[in-house]
Amino acid sequence: MSPALAGIPLRDWRAQGKSLKFKGHTIAYWTAGQGEPLLLIHGFPTASWDWHFLWNTLAEHYQVIACDMLGFGDSAKPRGHDYRLLEQADIHQALLAHLNIDAPVHVLAHDYGDSVAQELVARHHEGRARLASCVFLNGGLFPETHRPVLVQKLLLSPLGPLIGRLFSRKKLAASFAQVFGPHTQPSEQELDDFWSLIARNNGPAVMHRLIHYIPERREQRDRWLAAMQKGGLPLRVIDGAVDPISGAHMVARYRELIPEPDTVLLDGIGHYPQTEAPCHVLQHYQAFRAALSKAAVA
């Protein structure tokens, strides 16, 4: 955490939430500020509160928009649902339509949200979405570099339903201890809040269904990679380097595969840079946007 960026307490965040219906399911969402639309897409297994350190500052410059995706946070978590990344992209497009936003949208994504953002990038190039830029934080952009933690492997196994039901705050703390940076570990209060969002609406009961994003990434890999290689849409990666899941090794692969790669590595930072080093993420995001604005004027 940084004293320069005051976070939003979870209770206050929840009080600011609104909701819409998507195919009969309640989706919690948040919006603030004015200007160009900026869509923030959270990761697994948390929720859009992940952005709370950045939210107010970003809202001074842009219209910020975020939702808890289906199966996450304060949104519905239907038990028998076949959760798909492609449907989560549909939900974000439905949210933009609900807000009457038809301008090109900037995207800032993390983890699971990176995959949803990759789908939106592909749809942009297919003429089914309108993006202005996309910035990825730590996430499995390439299946070949993704190194899931033990609980993710177990959730994918035949034991998945049982592992989900047994998932607890204690197990969350153990998993996060592995993936956060050594000097940027979450506080007990943060762990309580993360767990509150996961546990809401009996969330652990659907974790084994949500985890199927991992094979879905493999199915979409070539299509998403081709879209990212196409050019014409500004992209940047801001990555916590010591993340064992998708840290420096993922960025090395990104630099191999993406033409003219724009990447930033944050030394000593793990899988959640937006909560571990929000000032650095904000600095590098705003520099990216400033360069876009300068290029547009030139």
Rank of each mutant, 00 (worst) to 15 (best):
L155M: 11
A122E: 14
L172Y: 05
A177C: 08
S19I: 07
L40S: 00
G203K: 02
V206E: 03
K294R: 15
S196T: 13
R200Y: 13
Q274C: 07
Q34D: 14
G73R: 03
H249P: 01
A241L: 07
A227W: 06
R123A: 11
L266M: 09
A4P: 06
N100M: 14
A296E: 15
S2D: 14
P9N: 05
Q189P: 07
L96Q: 02
T57K: 15
L156V: 05
I163R: 00
A76R: 05
G24D: 08
Q152S: 13
F176V: 09
S168R: 08
L166D: 07
D50P: 06
P143W: 01
M207I: 07
F180G: 00
S133K: 04
V281K: 00
S246L: 04
G139S: 10
A177D: 15
I238H: 01
R236Q: 15
G7Y: 00
A6S: 15
A129R: 02
H52D: 13
L225Y: 02
S19Y: 11
G181N: 06
L154Q: 10
E119H: 12
H271V: 03
K294W: 12
P158S: 05
A248Q: 13
A287L: 12
C67Q: 13
V242A: 05
H146C: 10
I8F: 01
M207G: 03
A122H: 13
L210E: 00
E219Y: 09
E216I: 05
D192Y: 10
G80D: 14
L159P: 06
